Every structure is written in C-alpha cells, then in structure tokens.
Simulated assay, not measured.
Amino acid sequence: MMTRETMYQAIIDKDVKFEGVFFTAVKSTGIFCRPSCTARKPKIENVEFLETANEALKKGYRPCKVCNPLEKLGETPTFIKRIIEELNENPSLRFRESDLISRGIQPVTIRRWFLKNHGITFNAYQRMFRINSAFKKIQKGEAVTIAAFEAGYESLSGFNDLFKNVFGAPPSQSRDKNVIDLTRIETQLGTMIACAVDQGICLLEFTGRKMLETELKSLAKILKAKIIPGNNRHFSMLTQQLNEYFEGSRRQFTIPLFMPGTKFQQKVWHALQQLPFGEIRSYKQQAIDIGSPDAIRAVANANGMNRIAILIPCHRVIGENGAMTGYGGGIWRKQWLLQHEKKS
C-alpha cells in the first residue's frame, strides 16, 4: 500500500506515473491538485491525500488552476478533437494553415501538439490518415487511381511515391501488405495508445510503458504490417467501454480482441480473461488453473508479454506472498485498478 511518504515524494518529483492514483489537497489553501502539478509544493503536514477528485470537491477543496485536476492529463484539446473527428469522417480533408487560422488555431500550436503526442507534424499526420484510407480502399479491390483521388490526392505520381515510401511497394503490388490502425485514448489513469486490425483490438498500453516502442515494433513484425494513425471500427466501442469501466459501470469487456502469440501465451491470456472482476490470483494459482503447475515463471513471462492492458487483466495477478509484482503500466496503476474493481 502507498504511504504518505511515498505519495509526498511523488508530488515532489512531479511523477506522472501516479496520475489519477491520488489527489493532493492542501489544507492551508483549500486547493487540490494532481500529483504532477508544477505549482509550489506544500509541507507534508499541510497535505491531505485523497483517492478521487469528487472526494476533494465534497470536502470543499477547489481545483488548482495550474494543473486542472478535473481534466484528464494530456487530454486532447477540444479543437484538435474536432479536427480528428472530421478526418475520421472524411480522410480526404486537407487542413491548410489558412484553414486553421480561420478557426482561430495557430498552426504552430497544432504542430507542436502533434509532434509531442504523435511524434509527427500535423501535416504528416494528415498524410498518414489519407494514405491509410487509400490503402484500405485498394485492399477492397478499388482501382488505384480512384482510391488516390477519393483520398484527396491531386497527383497520382505523388500518391504512388508516398505509398511506396510507407509500404515499401507501389499500390499495384500491395495486396500482401497490412495496416494496423493507431489512436490515442485518454483515461483517468493517463493516456493510452490503442492499435486495432479488422479482427479486433491488438494493443492497449499506457504511453509511459517502457516496452511500448518494442511492443509496437514486435506487433508490426508479427503481422507484417505498418502501424499508421487511422480510424478503425473498434475504436469507438473501446473508448466507450473503457469510460464505463473507469466510471464503475462495466465489469466485463465485450469488444473483439486479436492476440497474436505462441500457443502457450494465448492460453495464458485467455485464462486471464476468465479471472473474475474484483478478484486476484497468484502466478502459482494461474499456472495451476491452466494445467501447468510447474510453469510459474513461464506464466509470469506470458503475463509480461500481454499487449492489451486492462482488457486482458494481468493486473489481477500478484505475487504468492501478496506483493504487488511488476506491472508495465506502473505498480501504482496496478494497485489503483485492483482497488477500483474491489469497490465497483
């Protein structure tokens, strides 16, 4: 369990790993903050640590104007959400600087946001969205020329050059290529990256996971696919079910999942999905449950290779002695998830 000292050190360090895990209420000012707030830190004797923002509000604390604890950390600004929604509805749209300025948006602002949160500029993001849309049309049998112009490309040669640069082959030779769609989802515990293919969600991880880049590269290699920002029919259901889970109104996920891995890994992951909501198991119990009582270490390794956090609840597995063992999303997130499920 977290101690006052642990939580106080987290706010001194402005540690985002504790985001959503607790809130800091300052008795002398009547203000409450998120753990990563950059405002001046109070003395520990003046601090009250609370589990939720609602608890802080009920006790009369006011939200900090510096860190805005009532908002999700890293939440996509409303004006960017609208633009992404428009691109989802019509990938052929092309937002130029003049279009942004007419909406009261500074081009440098949106460029910096996309560089920080997607690692590419807004213009590059739009290009990837269009090329993703065109690729899917070609895969469904549509002529290359029609797919290119429907995706908003004015030059067929320019489209062919970009397509070959992304997929390593011209559109006419891309039948054996695949795409993994990628998006960001903000949750109470921080931003998550989601990936999906036609079969279902194939990755869901917190952005701070150290193995995230390795997981993305591995997934792309296994599926022989390019990971590109784009819309996917599973993303809206995923967002809805995650919101319901964090609100405490959902105990079971029904969204389709796609879990490429070895037979043993898949056996472990399927068993994880059967763990009852609000209950925990040890790695030893999990090994016994799948009929491999001597494979405790292999089970633990398979849990660690799980790419779909929360939906495949590896957070429900703890050490034999009851210790909170490692969790890719952070040990405090694991503790929060278990407490959340116990109370829901």
Rank of each mutant, 00 (worst) to 15 (best):
M7A: 12
A10Y: 04
A10G: 05
D15K: 11
F18K: 01
V21I: 05
F23C: 03
K27A: 12
P35A: 06
C37N: 06
C37H: 04
T38W: 03
K43Y: 09
I44P: 00
E45V: 07
V47L: 07
E48S: 09
L50G: 00
T52G: 05
E55N: 05
A56D: 01
G60H: 08
C64M: 05
C67V: 02
C67E: 01
C67Q: 02
C67M: 05
N68R: 13
L70I: 08
K72Q: 09
L73H: 08
I80H: 04
R82T: 12
R82F: 09
E89Q: 13
E89F: 04
R94N: 13
F95Q: 04
S102A: 15
S102W: 04
R103I: 08
Q106H: 11
P107W: 11
V108G: 08
T109W: 09
T109N: 15
I110Q: 06
F114A: 05
F114I: 04
G119Y: 08
T121I: 05
A124S: 14
M128S: 07
R130D: 02
R130S: 13
I131R: 02
N132K: 12
K136M: 14
K136P: 01
K137P: 00
K140L: 12
V144K: 10
T145F: 14
E150P: 00
G152L: 11
G152D: 10
Y153L: 12
S157G: 02
N160F: 03
D161A: 14
F163L: 02
F163R: 04
K164F: 01
V166Q: 02
A169V: 15
D176R: 13
N178W: 09
N178R: 15
N178D: 12
N178E: 13
V179H: 01
V179Y: 02
I185F: 07
Q188G: 07
L189C: 05
M192N: 01
A194L: 12
A196P: 06
A196M: 09
L204S: 00
K210P: 00
E215A: 03
L216C: 09
K217M: 12
L219V: 06
I228C: 04
H234I: 11
L238F: 07
Q240P: 00
Q240D: 13
Q241I: 09
Q241S: 13
R250I: 10
T254R: 13
P260G: 10
G261S: 11
T262R: 03
K263W: 06
K263G: 06
W269A: 06
H270S: 15
F277D: 05
G278K: 04
K284D: 11
K284W: 04
G291D: 03
I296P: 02
A298W: 04
N301D: 12
N301C: 08
M305R: 14
I310R: 04
P313L: 06
G319V: 12
G322A: 13
T325R: 14
R333M: 06
K334L: 10
W336S: 01
Q339W: 05
H340P: 10
K342C: 03
S344P: 03
